[in-house]
Structures are given as structure tokens and as C-alpha cells.
Design a protein around this nucleic acid. Structure first.
Lengths: 237, 237
DNA sequence: GCTCGTATGATTGTATACAATTATACGAGC
DNA sequence: GCTCGTATAATTGTATACAATCATACGAGC
């Protein structure tokens, strides 16, 4: 809820290690480093003006976050997300967002409900005006509200992880396509289901919302962002 | 599949850091360190005969695994799992194990199918004989087979994480109670559903299997293992 | 010309030294 | 007696030094 909510998360934004971690994660998510690119401890350290120690610790964390892969005595490599991974994540998220919406219906607070309503109204406004930047931010915030409202640290943590993980993809799709209005509609549906305490409906709609987001992403050229499958047996999407 | 399958996981079992990580995780899971106990870098290092550097790196990883919480400039504390956390995890696992069973139905290989059948037969044998040790191991293995068979690195990773996470609890329940036979029955059901390519049924049964496991755990005194909720608003179970 | 072994350089893994922060103890002031 | 401030000790955070491992280049031998 507040900034004081210390979950099992990278706890420290202000230590050197924390700054390296966050900056490196942003850089990877934003595409600064190509997939499978090797990250050298010393180079990163010099670039950020720190020694190898905090860099190494940040690496260990990024590895568990799934953003890089460390091969012992060799190096750290930016992880590649395959198309199938993206698909799997969305299918999993679909289930979990559904569960989250169900729980949120039961546990949402008055303040959270109000923020959610406000979020939907604002999003519709910015959609009309064509403010893509704000739209993307509101979209993120909508889901964060949902995650917090479900009143489950575990589920919240899982969903935020996934959310982070697919940011690389999502960033490009919501902004490019005209999914904004449709996405807003669906947010409104979920919001109203929660407001009227219909957990079943909220779950179904949140489920569907993820599937739709995924379908839209595929239609709008997931292929352009990610290369073909690494394994020849990969799903064709 | 093979030991060569390097996922986003603690990659190195043989470095000092890797050994510290695994040993520390085992110690926490086995209950050697009490909840909320403070772990001091130097003490751990001395006990394992290494310096602080690998200990610190292991700490960062354990934090992301959710086993400890690091408060900047203060220390590392063993994370407490509340009853509600356990419940949430089982509800989430129920959904994901269902999805896993569904996907496994579609992607399971001949070899995996055979190992799963063998697992069920063996488990029934050991259940009759009262071999609790082997039974627990076969139970773990059954789920691992399922995870591998679903052919999704992402889902497999998630489920294995959760599996690890609740090991503290599970270890005591399967061994104590007489759930062995019932659990085996349910495994057989899932196995046969997969064998007959009934994805819907497999999903439903796997769903149910987790719920049952949880219900059984609660009946057999989850309360004895974990203290009351930390937050007064916690679920009463 | 090709293969293999060795030497060199680069990079990661670990230990140690030092800096910064936090916790504790003690005593001055009221 | 209580509060607060300072000094000291303990612990974490970071930088650096050294060891081990891996990659590359070069040359001997065939």
C-alpha cells in the first residue's frame, strides 16, 4: 500500500547495489542491451561509477528475476524471451488476474475502489484526447490497484513480477495499436463487476481481459519484436 | 529434462556462493533457523568456512526467493509465512497445477508418461508397506514429472518455486497423516486422464488435488506449525 | 597445412580492508 | 529518576587485491 510496504522485493533503491539493479533492469527492459548480450561486471561498474561488488550482487538478483542468465565462470547474458514464453505468461496471468479480481471483489477497500473508478474515468478521458503516454501509465496503475486490492501479498508479488517481465513487449503494443479504447472498456467492466460485488463476473472479465490483450498483441506483430522460436518445436502462435 | 537444462535458477551448485545458498535454503526450510531470526553475514560465513562475499550474494538470492528479508543497513531476517500465505499459495497452485495438467495432456512425451505410470504404481506399493519416506519422495517426483511434461519453462519454474516454498509445511503433513493413499488415488486419476488425453478432466482433477491437499493440511493442524496471523485481519482458515 | 599444447590475457570467484551506518552503553544535564 | 547526546562497538556496504578459471593466440610437432 504505502511505500513502507517492504515485501520480498529488492529492498533498497538507494544503495549502490539497488541503483545498479534498478538501472540495469530498466536498461534491459527498455532494450538497451540486446538479447544474449554479455554483461561484463567491470564495464557495467565503470559505466555506473561503482566497483564490481554491488554489480555482482545486482547480477544475482537479476538472474532470479529472470532477466539475465549467469553461467559460472563465464559471464552474464541477457535472457531471451521466446514467443512461447510470452504466450505462457499471458495464459498464466489470465488465470491469476482472474483470481486476483475475485479476491479483490471480496477485499477491496473504499479508497481503492474510488481510485479504481477514478482511474477508469481518467483513462477514458485521455483515450479520447489521444494521450498515449498517460494511457499507458493509467493502464499499469489499474492493474496495480487490482493487485493491491486482492489483499494477498503472495498473489500481488507474482502478478507484479509477471507484469514487469512482459513490459518489454507491452510497452510497444498498447502505445502502437488502437487497443486503448477496448482495453478501457474492459477495465470498466471489471471495475463495475467488483463494485457490484460480483466476484464470478469479475474473475471472468479479468480472465478475458488478459486473453484479449494477448490476442491483440499477436495481431499487432509480436513477430516484429521477437525473433522466431529458439527451439524448432516452438509454438507457431 | 536433463541436468543440462539451465533455467533462470541458481546456476551454480559448486561455487562457494552456490553452496552457501543451497545449504542456507535447506536450513531455513528444515527449520534450523526460527522465523524472524536474524542472519549475520559473518556468523554464517564462519560456520561455512567462507568469507562474507559469497554469503552476501547468497543472501540477495534468498531474498528474491522470499526466504529472507533484507533491511538495508540492518540485517537479514528469516521470512515468516503466515497461514494466509500458505492458503494463498495453495489456491494459486491449484489453478496453476490445473493449467499444468492441461498442457501436460497435450505435450507429454512417451517417456514421461511411462515414468508417471511407474511413479503411481510404486507409490501404491510403498503406501501399502507404510514406507513414508519413499512415499514423500515419489509424491515430489510425481509433481516434478507433471511440471516437466507441461512443456513450459515459465510454468515449470513458477510451480517449482511454490513447491519449494511450502516444503516447510508439506514435509510434516504428508508424513504424519494418512493422506498417502488418498493422494495416490488422486495422482492415479490425473495420470489416467492425461493418458486418455482428457485435458479438461486432468485440469479439474489437478485443481481438486491441490485443494484436497490443502484441506487435509488444515485438518491436521497447520496451526501447530505456524503461529497465529501476524495481522489481526488475517484469514481464520 | 593441420592439430594440439602451452603461454598470455581477460574475466569471474573469493577474501580482505576500509567506509558508512546502526545499535548500545554510558554519563551529563535537568 | 528521566531524557538526551555522545562515544564506542557491531554490522552492513563498498572497494580493492588476489586466486581460479576460461578464451585466445601463437608456435612446435607431425
Amino acid at each position: 500500500m504505502s511505500d513502507f510496504d517492504v515485501r520480498q522485493e529488492v529492498s533498497d533503491k538507494y544503495s549502490l547495489r539497488g541503483r545498479v539493479f534498478h538501472r540495469l533492469r530498466d536498461d534491459i527492459l527498455s532494450g538497451k542491451y540486446a538479447e544474449h548480450e554479455e554483461l561484463k561486471e567491470m564495464a557495467i561498474g565503470e559505466e555506473m561509477g561503482v566497483s564490481r561488488t554491488p554489480v555482482r550482487e545486482a547480477f544475482r538478483q537479476l538472474e532470479l528475476e529472470g532477466l539475465i542468465q549467469i553461467i559460472p565462470n563465464k559471464g552474464a547474458y541477457v535472457t531471451g524471451i521466446t514467443e512461447k514464453d510470452v504466450k505462457d505468461i499471458y495464459m498464466i496471468r489470465s488465470l491469476l488476474e482472474g483470481l486476483c479480481a475475485r479476491w479483490a471483489t471480496e477485499h477491496i477497500t473504499k479508497e481503492q475502489m474510488e481510485e479504481m473508478e477514478e482511474n477508469v474515468y481518467l483513462a477514458e478521458f485521455h483515450a479520447k484526447k489521444g494521450h498515449l503516454e498517460q494511457l499507458a501509465e493509467l493502464d499499469n496503475r489499474f492493474h496495480d490497484i487490482l493487485y493491491e486490492a486482492c489483499d494477498s501479498k503472495i498473489l500481488e508479488h507474482q502478478l507484479k513480477d509477471f507484469h514487469q517481465y512482459v513490459l518489454r513487449v507491452r510497452k510497444k503494443t498498447l502505445a502502437n495499436a488502437n487497443r486503448g479504447p477496448k482495453s478501457n472498456e474492459e477495465h470498466r467492466g471489471i471495475m463495475e463487476a467488483i463494485r457490484s460485488r460480483d466476484a464470478e463476473l469479475a474473475e471472468r472479465l479479468a480472465n478475458r481481459h488478459m486473453i484479449n490483450a494477448y490476442d491483440n498483441m499477436v495481431k499487432n506483430g509480436l513477430h516484429e519484436i521477437y525473433g522466431r522460436e529458439e527451439t524448432p518445436s516452438g509454438d507457431s502462435l
